[in-house]
Write a protein that binds this DNA or RNA. Sequence first.
DNA 1: TCATATACTGATTAATTTATCAGTATCTCC
DNA 2: GGAGATACTGATAAATTAATCAGTATATGA
Lengths: 107, 107
Amino acid sequence: MPIYNGCGYSLTMQVIGGKWKICIIDALRNGPLRPSELFKAIPEATERVINHQIRELLMYKVIDRTIYAEQPPRSEYFITELGKTVFPLIDSLDDWGDKNREIYGDI
Amino acid sequence: MPIYNGCGYSLTMQVIGGKWKICIIDALRNGPLRPSELFKAIPEATERVINHQIRELLMYKVIDRTIYAEQPPRSEYFITELGKTVFPLIDSLDDWGDKNREIYGDI
DNA sequence: TCATATACTGATTAATTTATCAGTATCTCC
DNA sequence: GGAGATACTGATAAATTAATCAGTATATGA
């Protein structure tokens, strides 16, 4: 399986493996959000950084955006059908960490 | 869920998220291996780098080692019971990438 | 007209992660 | 004694990722 480069795992990691991507996906889980709302949802990261991660998630078709022809400009990001298929992955990873946290109490 | 820092996801990623960790875990999947065998199994990475990732996997108790009191020195790395619980995670991530690879044919 | 809000981006620096190179130490075999 | 195998580590360089700062542009309302 993993000759590493080109294996499924490394592709998946390329898609969801950025520092803030999971936060963005999670924030969009119960409905679309405008950029400003996303920034508020993730105050630990700067807007520039979140924008950068958004760009990648768009590129990988995990999220998409609706641009409204309004003024001031308005846009909304939302999870695509493809994006919804990563929910189980994220949940499994999150569960594993929660379940095993006490093992690492000393680290 | 993810306030990011301290969430289960980020802990899991700390544990299995290094560049070569999955290769090491995968190589040990059908039985213990000596360091030199691991190096052979992952020729893309240098020995020093693999050693470094091994150190972390040991620290996180994903793998363990048996040191034989022989000369020349012999040791073997193997997956712990905890380590075996990450197999399903790795498999899911690997499957997701394989299943969706064609979507990214243009990237 | 000036402050504010919207969405977004370029250039640069800082931090983290990987990689390279060279080194330690011990014992066997020729 | 010297070459080779074993396992492992320190110091540093390179590459990758993330963060900071400042900027674009458009339009509203005071």
